[in-house]
Simulated assay, not measured.
Amino acid sequence: MLIPDLPTAPWQKVGTDLFHYNGKEYLLVIDYYSNFPEIALLTSTIATNVITHVKSIFARHGIPKTVVSDNGPCYNGKEWQQFSMQYGFHHVTSSPQHAQANGKAEKGVHIIKQLLKKATDAKSDPYLALLSYRTAPLDCGLSPAELLMNRKLRTTLPCYTQIKRNEEIQTKLDNLKRKQKNYYDKATKTLTPLAKDDVVRIHDQDTWSRKATVLQEVGPRSYKVRTEDGNILRRNRRNLLKTKEHFQEAGCDDAQSEDAVSLPNKVPKLRSNGHGQSNDETSALPALRRSERHIKKPVKLDL
């Protein structure tokens, strides 16, 4: 038995393989150092699709130095060769009909299939099952997540984790935030807080056309307001302009408009006498007439 060269740091050497489960195709990438697995659901097994998902995984954890795979069609093509040259990693393939050469990925496929099967049988979340495996301690006493990320991942299980704070980094971050605040505050002014029932104008698309009244403050510098048409919106203080206008909801206007519409309905219907004339209260209705305002004709300059 040949012992492969073990990496000295996480994500230096990874194994990858494709597997089929429950009518779907999956991609597996597993780290040789930490046994941390990454899986992706594939819509097809063509090389371009597999390479896209591998790029997504490398964008999260970095580009490894060595990638081990079998001689599948997606790994033994011109596209994968160009991908390895572009990203700068060494691609190692196993001998055909000899799966032991890619044993890390084969074992990872077996573990992931067992996790998916148990999650399906128990009708539970497969992502939580994958998280549980990533946070379970290995024989070395540390979990795959701790070996890869140097921290414990939070799960649904209660556990005590003491967070180690780096005072030097925390101080640098605080100073950076204060510097950003000082630069930003130079071109701003403090806005007075709003109170309930204050009338404001809402800033929408470079206009202050909509009028509203303040209902309550729901967060720091964030308010719920009711517009004149009855809509309840949430806006930041910088998008609200306090005014001294009178606020009137659309309900009052609607009531007036309903009364105006109902007036013609109260007029009795006209009954015809058969000669094109009505014999009811038509004579009591006022006759329409034009305005008696005298209109002066414009004086034009005659040249």
Rank of each mutant, 00 (worst) to 15 (best):
H91M: 06
Q114C: 10
S124G: 11
D125W: 08
S95H: 06
H91C: 07
S94V: 07
N102T: 05
T120K: 00
L131Y: 04
A101R: 03
P96C: 11
S132P: 00
H90L: 12
L116C: 09
Q97E: 13
K113D: 11
H98P: 04
D125T: 12
E106R: 06
Y127T: 15
P96D: 08
L116Y: 09
A129F: 10
L128Q: 15
Y133K: 09
D121L: 10
H110P: 00
S94N: 08
I111N: 06
S95N: 08
E106V: 10
I112W: 05
G88C: 11
A129D: 11
H91E: 04
Y127E: 15
I111H: 02
V109S: 07
S132W: 03
K107I: 11
V109L: 05
Q97S: 13
L116M: 14
L128S: 12
N102A: 06
K117W: 04
K113W: 07
E106T: 09
S124W: 04
L131N: 03
I111Y: 00
F89H: 04
P126Y: 12
D121I: 07
S124C: 09
K123T: 06
S124H: 04
L128T: 14
L131Q: 15
K107N: 14
H91P: 08
P96S: 11
D121M: 06
T120P: 00
A129G: 14
H98Y: 13
I111A: 02
K113L: 09
G103F: 11
S124P: 01
K107T: 13
S95R: 07
Y127W: 15
A119C: 15
L116N: 06
V92T: 12
Q114V: 04
H98S: 11
Y127L: 15
T93M: 13
P126N: 08
Y127M: 14
L115P: 01
L115T: 14
Q114Y: 02
A119N: 10
K118C: 13
G103T: 03
K117H: 09
L130C: 14
A101K: 06
D121V: 10
S124A: 15
L128H: 15
Q100S: 07
A119I: 04
V92I: 12
I111F: 01
L131D: 03
I111K: 01
A99D: 02
